[in-house]
Measured scan of single mutants.
Amino acid sequence: VTVHVDGVEYDFDNPEEALKFAKKVAEDKNGTYEVHGNQIRVT
């Protein structure tokens, strides 16, 4: 699973970890996250 944040890609073997990371980053920057299959984009 790849999490995209501001043009940087973070790869996770564990989808739950990826989702947790995306949620935290989105909260920290008052943004949102979208899941597209095995890609998660934080905006």
Rank of each mutant, 00 (worst) to 15 (best):
V1T: 11
V1Y: 15
V1R: 05
V1Q: 04
T2P: 01
T2A: 05
V3A: 01
V3N: 01
V3Q: 00
V3I: 03
V3D: 01
V3C: 03
V3E: 00
V3R: 00
H4M: 13
V5Y: 09
V5F: 10
D6C: 11
D6V: 03
D6F: 07
G7E: 06
G7T: 04
G7Q: 05
G7W: 05
G7L: 04
V8C: 12
V8S: 07
V8H: 11
V8I: 13
V8F: 11
V8A: 09
V8Q: 12
V8G: 05
V8R: 12
E9Y: 11
E9C: 14
E9Q: 14
E9I: 14
Y10W: 09
Y10C: 10
Y10L: 04
Y10N: 02
Y10M: 04
D11H: 15
D11N: 15
D11E: 14
D11F: 15
D11L: 15
D11S: 15
F12N: 00
F12P: 00
F12H: 02
F12S: 00
D13Q: 11
D13I: 10
N14L: 07
N14F: 06
N14D: 15
P15L: 15
P15N: 08
E16D: 12
E16W: 08
E16Q: 08
E16I: 08
E17N: 07
E17K: 05
E17I: 06
E17S: 09
A18H: 01
A18G: 10
A18N: 02
A18V: 00
A18K: 02
L19S: 03
L19Y: 07
L19W: 05
L19P: 03
K20S: 11
K20L: 11
K20E: 14
K20M: 10
K20R: 13
K20Y: 08
F21G: 03
F21M: 04
F21N: 03
F21V: 04
K23Q: 14
K23A: 11
K23E: 13
K24G: 10
K24Y: 07
K24E: 12
V25R: 05
A26T: 06
E27L: 13
E27I: 11
E27Q: 12
D28I: 11
D28G: 11
D28P: 03
D28K: 10
D28W: 11
K29I: 15
K29Q: 12
N30C: 13
N30S: 07
N30R: 08
G31F: 07
G31K: 04
G31H: 06
G31N: 03
G31T: 07
T32K: 13
T32Y: 14
T32I: 12
T32R: 13
T32V: 12
T32D: 08
Y33V: 15
Y33L: 13
Y33D: 01
Y33G: 02
E34C: 14
E34G: 03
E34H: 10
E34R: 05
E34S: 07
V35T: 07
V35R: 08
V35L: 07
V35F: 07
H36E: 13
H36V: 14
H36M: 14
G37Y: 04
G37M: 07
G37T: 04
N38R: 09
N38H: 08
N38F: 03
Q39P: 01
Q39W: 08
Q39K: 10
I40M: 04
I40K: 01
I40H: 00
I40W: 01
I40Y: 02
I40G: 01
R41P: 02
R41H: 15
R41A: 07
R41S: 10
R41E: 08
R41M: 14
V42R: 00
V42L: 05
T43W: 10
T43G: 07
